[in-house]
Design a binder for these strands. Structure first.
Lengths: 212, 212
DNA sequence: AGATGTGAATGAGTTCACAGCT
DNA sequence: AGCTGTGAACTCATTCACATCT
């Protein structure tokens, strides 16, 4: 049952966010059709995605927001608190320390590290920047389970391996390079530049149905 | 022939990056098999992806790095310079202004805007922050073709529409919300939080081959 | 011989359509 | 009647295997 596709998984996160919004509005129940219309999704896909994990809906009625929401939360592991360690406190790293999505609902930044001695010792958002040499100790002390790499490409593989050795559970990598993963420590690379290039290509046909 | 899948497209960006690295090392030719091994890709997929756009390889030999690289560059539209306007100069927006991948090889940040009057007028990385009210003028003056949204969810749709009205070609959205797109102005939402949740799920089997 | 380019085969993911519950 | 849950149909994507060219 651990064979859930990443696509499905990402949609579950999305559904959860929709449910949160609906909950805040005071909606108690919603049908797959209405959910789909409201947020630009596909109704049958919602049903199929959810049905993978049990029968959450009430036939003839729809889905109860509150119980479904907490079921999704526990499925995604958001009911237990998880600590993040951010490696690399340059512009991007610093932004991530404060990023709301990284400090909410089950995730929280608990440690920072950088290899630049001029940054070590500085406070960022109430946390002290530690040397990368002390990364292992930092992970163990804070009990962090997730690592975030905001370092240059050349430093990424090394930082990943240090995190893995320190017992981290998974790593999110922002360096535009392929990490050779070790067994048991999944990595996900998020390449911000690549999204620009995708849009650049989609934009490529200027004269086509363009207004005169 | 404008029907290229986003998956293929993202891989093209990746291939280009690999070729750049190989070029820097002085490699002149490479076979799909070697390219695949070296960067953890699939050889037949490389061939199929490339063949979509013409015959770039030499049978029996492989691919010449230099010509293939420039063909990919022009395919992805990286041969003409493109200006980015960043809307929202909070932590994330500021980081993106300086982000190397946003200021290299065909892309450059040319304008900034924010709705917070306390930020308007400030300089970030040599650029002045303009009021969002002046976004249309900013886009026209700078000739920017791509917009980047680093604003709160509640402000995202509005900012998108302003950008679209000002004639922007496409928008990259970092707010965790679905944008209702207008015809001719594609949006791509990048949700940083969602990657955390994906890793959180993959991590779900803690005690298994754990280090002593 | 050696590697590309490509149809054919396989696999993954999505949509359809409807049986079955409320 | 209304909406879920789900097998079957379909579409999209990847991998295989080989004819083709250098």
């Amino acid at each position: 049952m651990s064979g859930v596709s990443p696509l499905t998984l990402n949609r579950l996160s999305l559904y959860l966010r929709c449910l949160q919004e609906l909950g805040a509005e005071g909606v108690a129940r919603i049908s797959s059709t209405e959910l789909a219309e409201r947020f630009g999704l596909s109704a049958s896909q919602i049903r199929k995605d959810l049905a993978q994990f049990g029968e959450f809906g009430i036939r003839g009625v729809g889905y109860e927001i509150v119980p479904l929401r907490s079921r999704l939360r526990s499925l995604l592991g958001l009911d237990r608190e998880r600590g993040l360690v951010i490696v690399g406190v340059g512009s991007l790293g610093t932004a991530l320390v404060r990023f709301p999505g990284f400090n909410r609902d089950g995730y929280r930044v608990v440690g920072l590290a950088d290899s630049d001695p001029r940054l070590v010792g500085r406070m960022v958002d109430g946390k002290t920047v530690e040397p990368v040499a002390a990364l292992g100790a930092l992970v163990r002390r804070t009990g962090a389970t997730l690592g975030v790499l905001a370092v240059p490409s050349a430093a990424a593989q090394g930082a990943y391996e240090t995190l893995a050795a320190a017992g981290i559970g998974a790593v999110l990598n922002f360096a535009p390079t392929q990490i050779r993963a070790l067994p048991g420590v999944p990595v996900k690379t998020v390449d911000l530049r690549i999204h620009l290039e995708e849009l650049g290509f989609l934009m490529e046909r200027p004269r086509e149905g363009g207004r005169s």
